[in-house]
Design a protein around this nucleic acid. Structure first.
Lengths: 345, 345
DNA sequence: GTGAAAGCGCTAACAA
DNA sequence: TTGTTAGCGCTTTCAC
């Protein structure tokens, strides 16, 4: 039970293969510049001994960790109420795995956590960081910058554009919103409303901008602020019906909001899409497919976003070890969205 | 840009404070047995230099990592379709954070990944592991056992009970199921059906057992196999209506299944709960609260499960470093469930 | 192409 | 109480 069967070391492998530790090390790390027969012998020794390199020892000298931190800064529980988060993680995980990198998850839940995360990143435990769910006033970017860790953001960061060029991956929130609203226009709707997301997040702002791109300033009463939650959607929809009873279409900032909208419409006896057409955003399957009627929505490929973030970061890391510089590359990558037509619009 | 501003070492701190590295180390690790004025000087030096210990160097000698692996072995996408996973992670994260331990996430998606995970755990990168979503034929427990890493399982592992005493945390699936079915009985229902989950998972088996505890073997046609998904629920419900058109209550293995059930009932014009009462399991909010009608269901405290798993593991780890043995403690911890009444039953 | 040797930054005996 | 010293297991010049 307490038999901590001390794992074999490189030393042991070298001894068994009848070579020096240096040669054994070379083989373990790819085997370049080692003659074939020796490579073979070392490989066998590794196999027989069940040797696994001690990462701590390796990191100590290489200063690489083959690990990436994923920071999810979401004080609210929103992230946990939808599969967004899980899908991103999956995409990231796949990509990191393919590069033999480990995923260290840092969930934060308030001010204290922020300094903890800052310290961790500054401590040089990981090679880089992927950071999500930033709000406009979030202190995290500052901390991260201070930590000097290569970072890719999920979603366009909110601080003054260009002030500090950040690498990020985002969906085409604005373009997607435009497409959604144009679809409603194409349906012949004239009183098209928008229920926004939490406007301290760039995704919400961008979707609102997309709405305005098509509708102009129109009737300002047709824009109501929501918060990306079903409850927020309900509240906003009630307000909207009060302000503009003649509304005939709603573009909701996300599917969760749309589900709240649908509930209020049903409760008020408005038929969807006949009386009021509704479009969401995300194409979060468990929501969009289960609503009544099924939701027409703007799809974003969440998993691909995660994957791309990881890829960008790893590329950056590889670059730093190899040729320094080659500088920047694209600061932001924006993925396309697609309109998924179901029954609600 | 390439200024890898080499972080200050303990050596530097010691020099600045005018003490030996050993003393500096003692202060950094709690400062026991060091006279106050020295402690003070070292603390200041740490502060001024912005010193952060190099974890790799530390691990190399202590053989501790202050890191725990969370293994989620879910080949299917089910995990990602619900917030289960996110909630568990949150519970785990909170607990680990409180113990200054890091969370390394290992997502697996097939056979290859299993050996990768096995290697990683065997490689001694983490102090322990938390493992989820095991299926009956999963090779992971074997690999993990081989790796010799302290482990706590999420959900009762499926292999032969007692064969290998595993530490796990689970919900009272059986008791919860009993309570649900009894509630239906109390409602005066007599033709009560059960749509199971994927029966290669112990949670599904346990819920079925709970159903049988109350209903006996009853009419075997009233039990239909599902798979924890809405689509599975729909399919099973269709079959059920065909077999037993007189069914007046359904206990679904989880909320997602129940949502499928509700959809089929609506489509067939059966009123819920008037004609058919429906109960789910999980109390997964975004689902249970959004269905029409809102779902009566058996609630399990997912976040608490995660938290408890982490606590159990950390306790075990502390024990090993301190007094060895003290052996086992409870092999399994089962958390209570509660019936949440909404409109569907 | 291969090996010998010098650390990476830290902790933990052991001395003082 | 404090300092000295010997490694932890690995990579990486630098000779050979």
């Amino acid at each position: 039970m307490t038999e901590t069967v001390s794992r074999p070391t490189l030393e042991a492998v070298a001894a068994r293969a009848g070579v020096s530790r240096a040669t054994a090390s070379r083989v373990v790390n790819g085997g370049d510049g080692v003659r074939e027969p020796l490579v073979e012998r070392v490989r066998r020794a590794v196999e027989e001994l069940g040797y696994v390199p001690n990462q701590a020892a390796r990191s100590l000298v290489t200063r690489r960790h083959d690990a990436v931190a994923v920071v999810i800064a979401e004080p609210e529980t929103r992230v946990f109420a939808d599969p967004f988060f899980a899908l991103q993680l999956r995409g990231i995980s796949k990509e990191l795995t393919a590069h033999d990198s480990q995923l260290v998850l840092l969930l934060t839940e308030g001010r204290d956590d922020h300094t903890r995360v800052g310290r961790y990143l500054a401590g040089g435990h990981v090679d880089g960081a992927l950071v999500f769910s930033l709000h406009l006033d979030d202190p995290l970017p500052e901390l991260i910058h201070g930590a000097g860790v290569p970072t890719v953001f999920g979603g366009r960061p909110g601080w003054g554009d260009g002030a500090r060029p950040a690498v990020y991956v985002d969906s085409d929130n604005r373009g997607g919103a435009r497409e959604a609203v144009r679809h409603l226009v194409g349906l012949g709707r004239t009183r098209i409303a928008h229920i926004t997301g939490a406007l301290d997040q760039t995704s919400a702002v961008d979707r609102l901008d997309g709405f305005r791109d098509v509708m102009g300033e129109a009737d300002p009463r047709l824009v109501v602020e929501g918060d990306f939650t079903p409850a927020g959607g309900e509240r906003a929809m009630r307000e909207l019906l009060e302000r503009c009873p003649d509304v005939d279409a709603v573009f909701a900032a996300n599917d969760l909001t749309a589900s709240g909208v649908l509930r209020v419409l049903r409760e008020r006896g408005r038929r969807v899409p006949d009386d009021v057409a509704v479009i969401g955003f995300d194409d979060m399957l468990p929501v969009a497919e289960q609503t009544d009627p099924p939701l027409t929505t703007v799809r974003q490929d969440i998993e691909e976003m995660g994957r791309l973030m990881a890829r960008l970061l790893l590329r950056d890391l590889d670059r730093r070890t190899g040729k320094q510089g080659l500088d920047g590359g694209p600061a932001g990558v924006v993925l396309p969205t697609t309109l998924v037509r179901r029954a609600s619009a």
